[in-house]
Design a protein around this nucleic acid. Structure first.
Length: 257
DNA sequence: GCGACAG
DNA sequence: ATCTTGTCGC
């Protein structure tokens, strides 16, 4: 997948064309080895968006202890355009992964996997570049429809979309020819559901299983929650470079997100 | 033509 | 995403 021809600064039209080509290579079937390490990824911005800050947290499975964390900063290359998010966030994410001492067996990304108009959300795109199993955990919907989401923790409802650039071999379709692109998961009672969708080398069912397995008492699963905190300016004063081992964080009263 | 629109 | 204080509830 790694190709020097893949420019990260592209015109919207070119970026969309590239997404269509890459989407056909994103696998929706499980191709995961034994999971011992799970990584959480999230991106933040500084200086009015001039700088992109990528955070990666490596956790042990089972146990979810934090083994390593990396924060990487670099100049932002593209503006935010709905549907083209990966081109803006992935370069920095790759920089952070290069500094990680070991490759995880599964990566959880803040954003969509295939729950995307062209079936290539940031989680899918990143998975192709890293050639690792990835899944997306998003807080908001990009496309697709769904019914009411059950109230109980761990319950979910499928996120359905009309058929678009689908690969009949991999797509999960219903009798009406529509596609299941993700799941609206109630990760916590009384809180808006998160959207879980496969990124690369993982199925919808397995993606959901892993997210549920990594759920704590908060809305976001541990990998994404920790990466989110690290990438957010909340951790700014404490995330100068890279740290390892057991780390204690200053706990501030927060309620959501 | 009129909304919707990840982070 | 980011800018921001207090406030409500487990």
């Amino acid at each position: 997948m790694r190709s020097p021809l893949h420019e990260w600064t592209l015109e919207p039209q070119e970026a969309m064309a590239l997404q269509r080509r890459l989407a056909s290579r994103a696998e929706r079937r499980d191709r995961i080895d034994e999971v011992h390490h799970i990584a959480g990824v999230d991106i933040g911005f500084e200086d009015d968006g001039e700088t992109t800050r990528a955070a990666v947290v490596l956790l042990a499975w089972p146990g979810l202890e934090v083994l390593e964390e990396v924060v990487h900063r670099e100049p932002t290359r593209m503006p935010y355009i709905p549907g083209l998010l990966s081109f803006r966030e992935i370069p920095a994410a790759l920089g952070a992964f290069e500094r990680l001492s070991q490759r995880p067996d599964l990566v959880m990304v803040d954003g969509q996997g295939i729950a995307h108009p062209r079936r290539l959300g940031v989680a899918s795109h990143l998975g192709l570049w890293l050639d690792l199993p990835t899944l997306g955990v998003a807080k908001k919907r990009l496309c697709g429809k769904h019914g009411e989401v059950p109230a109980g923790r761990g319950e979910w409802t499928p996120l359905i979309d009309r058929r678009r650039d689908e690969d009949p071999e991999e797509a999960l379709m219903d009798e009406a020819g529509r596609v299941i692109i993700g799941a609206m998961l109630r990760s916590r009672e009384g809180v808006k559901p998160v959207i879980v969708s496969p990124g690369h080398r993982i199925s919808q069912a397995t993606a959901l299983e892993w997210v549920i397995a990594c759920l704590g008492r908060t809305k976001l699963p541990e990998p994404t929650r920790l990466a989110d905190r690290l990438a957010s300016r909340r951790g700014k004063a404490f995330t100068s470079e890279k740290r390892q081992g057991d780390i204690s964080y200053p706990s501030r009263p927060r309620h959501d997100r």
